[in-house]
């Protein structure tokens, strides 16, 4: 190549320059980033301190939106729902994902086919999943999931219509869709566990459980960190499935922070208040993710 014909002194100069490339190179990308991410985000923060209705004039109202949130039963209830959903999704999705990964990692026949099957729901759009699951959750006796319950002699359930059940029905739907995603990340982690460690532990007489506990599990830490973070963030900002399946109902039983901020903006026309809710959600997600990352990173071990 033409570079190889350059005198060696120039090459050295270039190499030292490569350690800190001129910022100008990044300028086009930074400009685009600023225009489509930074500016809207900062403009959004400003709206949180106004009473903007989405159309027409606005005026600054200071911290009134945040004060209103403290007395807003619906917003506070949605925080509780969001936390419940997040904890449930994080625990169940990753639990199921890990079991699936361990299952298809074992040397069994048709493991590739199984991986494809378990991963398939991930590629379906969440809204479509919600619409499809509405059929599964049909409350009529003998229809959908109730048909399965009837086979084993259990009473049928009003999956999405019973306020005490609807939230968990949604969790079930989300786990069904995303467990395959967790599985893939765990699989990548499992592939990275050196075979010689397993061999060594087998020679030492470790049982299957002990090998998982003391060899596989510690080495899965990076995969676990990613999975926990992604599922936490996914749970905290959950919108599509809830909106399509229940719209936050029955009553306010499945309202999440995301559906509340959607309704405040686009149904009630309170863009200012909605932005304030969004800001709280963003800070909340950032704080939780940061703490999680800090803690989980500290327990990762070098391979």
């Amino acid at each position: 190549m033409s570079v190889s014909t350059q005198p060696s002194t120039r090459r050295r100069k270039r190499r030292s320059g490569a350690l800190s490339p001129p910022w100008l190179f990044a300028a086009p990308a930074l400009l685009v980033y600023a225009a489509v991410v930074l500016y809207p985000s900062i403009a959004g923060v400003v709206y949180a301190f106004t009473d903007w209705s989405g159309i027409g004039d606005m005026s600054f109202v200071g911290l009134a939106n945040f004060q209103a949130m403290l007395g807003d039963e619906q917003a506070l209830g949605s925080i509780v729902n969001t936390l419940l959903i997040t904890v449930a999704i994080v625990v169940v999705q990753n639990g199921v994902g890990l079991l699936l990964a361990l299952g298809v990692h074992a040397r069994i026949k048709s493991q590739t086919l199984l991986r494809v099957i378990f991963f398939a729901p991930v590629v379906v759009s969440p809204v479509m999943v919600a619409f499809l699951w509405k059929y599964v959750y049909n409350p009529a006796p003998g229809a959908g999931l109730n048909g399965l319950l009837a086979v084993v002699g259990l009473p049928s359930q009003d999956w999405l219509g019973d306020p005490s059940l609807a939230l968990w029905s949604i969790v079930g739907m989300v786990v069904w869709q995303n467990a395959g995603y967790s599985m893939v990340i765990f699989l990548a982690g499992l592939e990275g566990v050196p075979a010689e460690l397993h061999e060594a532990s087998m020679i030492d007489g470790a049982s299957t459980v002990q090998r998982f506990r003391f060899v596989t599990w510690p080495l899965l830490a990076p995969a676990l960190t990613i999975n926990l973070m992604l599922s936490t963030i996914g749970g905290l900002k959950l919108f599509d499935q809830v909106f399509a399946a229940t719209g936050g109902g029955p009553g306010y039983a499945t309202e999440t922070l995301s559906t509340v901020l959607y309704k405040q903006a686009f149904v009630f026309g309170k863009f200012g208040y909605s932005t304030a809710v969004a800001l709280v959600l963003a800070l909340f997600v950032a704080a939780v993710s940061f703490i999680q990352l800090y803690y989980l990173r500290s327990r990762e071990v070098a391979q």
């Binding site: 509405k134 959750y137 049909n138 409350p139 009529a140 006796p141 009003d158 999956w159 999405l160 219509g161 019973d162 306020p163 109902g249 029955p250």
Partner: peptide, 11 residues
């Protein structure tokens, strides 16, 4: 009908 809260307009 049973479970009106779980029944949709289409149903």
């Amino acid at each position: 009908n049973d479970n009106p809260n779980g029944t949709t307009f289409e149903q």
